[in-house]
């Protein structure tokens, strides 16, 4: 495997008069991947990003980016990192063009109008280039922030809740933008509390809660756990064996043959569709049932599960 582009060890942050926002976080990010940091509000996502980008002073631990220790070689590392913050903090009276040109200069790059034009066009901001930022909609302001973050051509880009409060259409659009960035070789770390988003975008997912990384895994593996549909069907009469027609669903009999349990799906509705097919197949086979209970496992289940184990340990 490649050297990690970002390597975090034992990162801890306790705010003054505040909670322990990060608790001994270890995390490695691989070059070129999209990593989704998934967690509820207050989990510590923004704090983690802040610690890497220089907005938050860590209370403990180390951060290496591009092999540089951030506590010493922050200059060379920061020049290669971009940040799109969670809050829509923009210079309201500045025009889009000037705001992006400023970012380019601030990060030490020579003025490059062609590059700015390319960024603005790719984000559909070109016809707004001379507009004052305050005149733009929320979604457009978010794009301006992205444009600013891209102006110095970062190799590692943080997107803190890029689609929070963005409508469905824009969200899809944003996902395409992010995919395009990945195509160009940018490593992306995004935070979200939408499973759907992690699912759509990420190569790997990390779940953070209460300042701790609860699990990090390939999205596929994670989604198998996150995206399961479970259906429990109580049958009118016990079966000793499943009929041939039902074999393909992978359902299992229990409770002396009176209960049929299905587990499967991909977190994208396939599970529910299969349960519907299963129910129809049961009817066709003349097998009656008294109840059908469907449950999609969710991020919440995982959290509850994680919290449960933590309480047992405590």
């Amino acid at each position: 495997m490649d050297e990690p582009i970002l390597s975090i060890r034992g990162l801890t942050k306790t705010y003054r008069n505040g909670p322990r926002a990060l608790d001994n976080v270890d995390l490695d990010i691989r070059p070129g991947e999209i990593f989704a940091l998934l967690g509820p509000n207050g989990a510590g996502k923004t704090t983690l990003i802040g610690a890497v980008c220089g907005l938050v002073r860590p209370s403990g631990g180390t951060i290496h980016a591009f092999g540089h220790d951030l506590s010493r070689d922050w200059r060379s590392a920061r020049a290669r990192i971009g940040l799109v913050p969670q809050e829509l903090a923009t210079d309201m009276f500045e025009t889009v063009w000037r705001a992006v040109a400023y970012s380019q200069g601030l990060f030490g790059k020579p003025h490059n109008a062609a590059r700015i034009e390319e960024i603005l066009r790719s984000l559909s901001l070109w016809d707004k280039k001379d507009a004052q930022i305050r005149a733009l909609s929320g979604g457009m302001k978010r794009r301006v922030l992205i444009a600013k973050a891209l102006a110095h051509e970062p190799e590692l880009l943080f997107l803190d809740e890029p689609t929070a409060g963005v409508d469905v259409e824009l969200r899809k659009d944003m996902w395409e933008q992010i995919a395009a960035l990945k195509q160009r070789g940018v490593t992306i770390i995004l935070t979200t509390h939408y499973i759907e988003e992690a699912e759509e975008m990420a190569d790997r997912v990390g779940i953070i809660q209460g300042g701790r990384i609860r699990m990090v895994d390939e999205k596929r593996a994670m989604m198998e756990r996150l995206g399961t549909t479970e259906a429990v069907i109580d049958l009118t009469a016990p079966l000793t064996q499943l009929p041939e027609a039902l074999a393909g669903f992978g359902a299992v009999l229990s409770e002396g043959g009176t209960r049929l349990t299905y587990r499967g799906g991909n977190g994208q509705g396939r599970g529910r569709a299969e349960v519907a097919q299963l129910a129809q197949a049961l009817t066709r086979a003349g097998i009656g049932f008294t109840s059908l209970d469907i449950h999609d496992s969710s991020l919440e289940d995982i959290f509850v599960g994680l919290l449960g184990t933590e309480q047992e340990v405590a």
């Binding site: 220089g54 907005l55 200059r75 920061r78 990192i81 940040l83 601030l106 030490g108």
Partner: peptide, 14 residues
């Protein structure tokens, strides 16, 4: 006050 300082703080600027 507005939060735009994030950019200065995250830049390679001393």
């Amino acid at each position: 006050f507005t939060g735009t300082i994030y950019e200065l703080l995250s830049a390679p600027v001393g």
